[in-house]
Amino acid sequence: MIADAVTVLLIGAGLFFFVAGTVGFVRFPDVHSRLHALTKADNLGLGLVVLGAALQAPDAATVLKLVLVWLLTLAAAATVAQLLARSALEDGAP
């Protein structure tokens, strides 16, 4: 019961970051600022959703798999952000 409430709270917080990140992705004036929004807010949102789901997991194996989903997206976000930032710079974005 308490786990359910915490899950709903975590997923709610995750959605907040998803929406905020997407608002930044639409509003920010240049490519690199938009990449900030994408990398930080949306991946934090996903992390909170995953954490909320982990509280409902029936066994340790599922928790580990959820952690793997989160680690993979985090590592991918940190790497892809650097690559895209550089690539946009070489394309002549200010």
Partner: peptide
């Protein structure tokens, strides 16, 4: 750091004045 990074960018994106100086 990741949490405060998300909060920082969320606050900047959602405020009507959008306080960024890239």
């Amino acid at each position: 750091g990741s949490l405060s990074g998300g909060l920082d960018v969320a606050a900047r994106a959602l405020r009507p004045r959008m306080p960024i100086r890239p």
